[in-house]
Design a protein around this nucleic acid. Sequence first.
DNA 1: ACGTCAATTTCGGGT
DNA 2: ACCCGAAGTTGACGT
Lengths: 240, 240
Amino acid sequence: MDAVRVVIAECQVDYGGRLTAHLPMARRLIVVKADGSVSVHADDRAYKPLNWMSPPCTTTITPAAQADLGATTADIDPRVREVWMIRSKSGDFLQISVGEIELDYTTELGIDPGLRKDGVEAHLQALLAENPATFGEGWSVVQREYMTAIGPVDLLCRDELGCYVAVEVKRRGEIDGVEQLTRYLDLMNRDPLLGEVRGVFAAQQIKPQARTLATDRGISCLVVDYDALRGLDHAEDRLF
Amino acid sequence: MDAVRVVIAECQVDYGGRLTAHLPMARRLIVVKADGSVSVHADDRAYKPLNWMSPPCTTTITPAAQADLGATTADIDPRVREVWMIRSKSGDFLQISVGEIELDYTTELGIDPGLRKDGVEAHLQALLAENPATFGEGWSVVQREYMTAIGPVDLLCRDELGCYVAVEVKRRGEIDGVEQLTRYLDLMNRDPLLGEVRGVFAAQQIKPQARTLATDRGISCLVVDYDALRGLDHAEDRLF
DNA sequence: ACGTCAATTTCGGGT
DNA sequence: ACCCGAAGTTGACGT
């Protein structure tokens, strides 16, 4: 069924799976997408639903009269007209007890052309790789995504003295990124071929605690101006 | 305006802010909530919209004819009937160029009674705090959320010999949790008042890599059975 | 399939 | 307001 269904109705919701959750009866927006996913929204909390079921999952709709026959645990709310049971393969379930329905609209949307993004971490890494002078005069990039046993280092560089430097690139520099770079440096500094490897933590923004931790570990911090870098990039495009 | 608005329409979307993104013209589901948030959905990707604007933000709707007057950069798609400009205070914007509208429905949902959850990390921590024998005979809990300079340790305990033990509680134990506990232990072991502090990593599930890293650092791992603990809890309720 | 890491993460709680 | 950590995180990518 390749369509979206939008429902506004009184409903009560019970979820069981990685946790259990309950929503008392109230009027809400229910969206069923072509992928089978179901989400239940209140009129706040931005785009996050109160409760949901991710695809793949299957929905079974039962009239309240029949659902009643199987109900042994508790009385069914008399307002309930039908029960939607949505199950995933992992055993999660979302039970929506639907009362009065105010809107029930189904339509086809077709395939979406998809989203084009610009400005994510990968672009920042690419721009830095093309402009190693951002780190300092005489710096060069040895390799992007330099593989180690525990994962890829974003940029492996050499400084003006030829010393290796591992660069961790983040859009927003937080403590996790420093931990990540620390793990790489610990490993790389056991490799005699590389000699002593220094670390640079490069991000558009660096949180104070991340900077403190980095400094404490002898890692340099570099705040990168994405727009300026992109400008450099465009300037080069014009020159050559 | 305390209401939800559900629109199904042809639209093109342009976002600028922390990154830039573009969606070509296609039929989509647009949801405007009472908090002012706007989200644009395709019929897949579960509950995540293709693009959105989080509250607080303000929406200005302009008929295409007028929007055209201000258009200097590019021709406006002739299918566009009105332009929604949604702006946040931080300068992010979401521009939705709306074409043919298939559905436009607005209604009040009222205040939602809200979601009740059970089984999150806080509950696991509370159950462990009430049942320190889970860690071992003769263990006691000194404090929950024991504050350190770099954040709160989930549980500070004493073992059967009276030695301090820092416990990190997770629903799912992964490498980040081990790093977190390691930072706490590094700090606490500099405090002469505590003496030597050991570490315990307690979770419902522990990933192999997390276990390996923990063991390597002298941190004990404990897999906790949430249901059994809850059972203990209920048993106690009945006994006293 | 699993592990790793990014995300316009979002969301809630504390200081 | 910022900072921190949890989340039913979700999602993409590589092994």
